[in-house]
């Protein structure tokens, strides 16, 4: 996909970057993206991004583990229905242990899958190249568009550097 044009600004201070993001959004800019070495809360809040979809994959994953655990223990016990210790063949209290562990296991694996999907999506349309300073000590803000007012806003908000990309 052809990269869209825009401005890439570099900041050192999270508070400055957050103010810049807030100003861009107040100006009506919707396509603002950020890269940072840590999830600075003020920056994430300024972006006002929608909630992550991770829970929509993790929760069904946990439910799948729960169902799978119950089915595994109950159906396999019925396959060889031998009474031991005078207890019912389908003894739910011990099966809850297995079911709980499988709920956590499958839920965690689903959570990992959701994270991988989300992390891959986070690379799309990005102007934050690997090897840059944004995983280390700088915060990058990309704003789509070629409006000179945006460039001016970024410079005035304390950016160390503003470049036109691509």
């Amino acid at each position: 996909m052809r990269p869209e044009p825009g401005f890439l600004a570099t900041y050192l201070e999270p508070a400055q970057a957050a103010r810049a993001v807030a100003a861009l959004r107040a100006r009506g800019q919707r396509d603002v993206r950020v890269a940072a070495p840590a999830p600075f809360p003020e920056l994430m809040a300024a972006l006002r991004a929608p909630p992550s979809f991770v829970g929509w994959i993790t929760f069904p994953g946990a439910l799948l583990g729960l169902t799978g655990g119950l089915l595994l223990t109950i159906l396999t016990s019925l396959t060889w229905a031998e009474v031991t210790g005078g207890k019912p063949v389908v003894s739910l209290p011990p099966f809850i242990v297995i079911t709980f562990e499988l709920t956590v296991l499958v839920g965690s694996l689903a959570n990992l899958l959701a994270l991988v999907i989300g992390a891959r999506r986070g690379l799309r349309r990005g102007h934050f190249a690997q090897g840059g300073p944004f995983t280390r000590d700088r915060i990058g803000i990309f704003c789509a568009g070629v409006d000179p007012a945006v460039e001016r806003l970024l410079r005035e908000s304390g950016a160390e550097e503003v470049t036109r990309v691509p």
Partner: peptide, 16 residues
């Protein structure tokens, strides 16, 4: 794992 620290990555990461 291809991490670049984008806001979308951090958003899913912190929730996960």
């Amino acid at each position: 794992f291809g991490w670049r620290g984008t806001d979308e990555q951090w958003r899913h990461y912190t929730r996960a």
